[in-house]
């Protein structure tokens, strides 16, 4: 199988590392070779962060380049727009609609673009935009945005739900498992 590429993008501190861990575990359990590339250190402090997940028969590069992503999973809508050039022509974006102002917007040096979901669609991308923060709160924690997104992403994969649940169980603390399962379902059925 040709290598498939998933980018997870967001704002440092939103929980993209956990999402990439769960995906890595999932694809390994399905018998694929997997590489996951993370960013640590200064970028994690509220900056734009990106994590790459690649799986297939044999994966070489740990990174994903422009025009290569089959999926972009975005925790924040501006980040979906920022990384749009990395999407394949026929690729799919799954994004949270939440808006988090970056510092240049806060200081007034730049403007946050409006109607981003529509603009991304008009650029030719397939986009699935949902209010993951609301779903996460409904599940019991604003921090579960990452799991809501994964639930939504699961739509696009022919992988049994039990395998997703097994990866969830292997990567989240037991006391938060039920809440996260609920977040996953809410995302899936959004």
């Amino acid at each position: 199988m040709e290598t498939k590429n998933i980018m997870i993008v967001g704002v440092g501190g939103q929980g993209s590392l956990l999402a990439s861990k769960i995906l890595g575990h999932l694809f390994l359990s399905q018998g694929y070779d997997v590489k996951v590339s993370e960013v640590h250190g200064m970028s994690q402090r509220g900056g734009s962060v990106v994590t790459y997940v690649r799986y297939g028969d044999k994966v070489y590069s740990p990174v994903i380049d422009e025009g290569e992503a089959d999926y972009i999973v975005s925790f924040e809508i501006l980040e979906a727009a920022r990384w749009l050039p990395y999407l394949k022509k026929e690729g799919q974006i799954v994004t949270n609609t939440q808006q988090i102002d970056p510092m240049p917007v806060i200081t007034g040096a730049a403007k946050y673009p409006e109607d981003l979901a529509d603009k991304i669609k008009n650029a030719g991308a397939k986009i699935d935009a949902i209010d993951c923060l609301a779903k996460a709160k409904e599940a019991g924690s604003a921090k579960a945005v990452n799991i809501v997104l994964l639930g939504r992403l699961s739509h696009y994969f022919d992988i049994p739900e039990e395998a997703w649940m097994a990866s969830l169980e292997a990567n989240v603390p037991a006391k938060f498992l039920e809440m996260n399962k609920k977040a996953f379902e809410l995302g899936k059925n959004a």
Binding site: Q44, M103, P104, K111, P113
Partner: peptide, 10 residues
Amino acid sequence: IDDEIPGRPP
């Protein structure tokens, strides 16, 4: 997209 995307530095 055509819009200028504001940077998001740490």
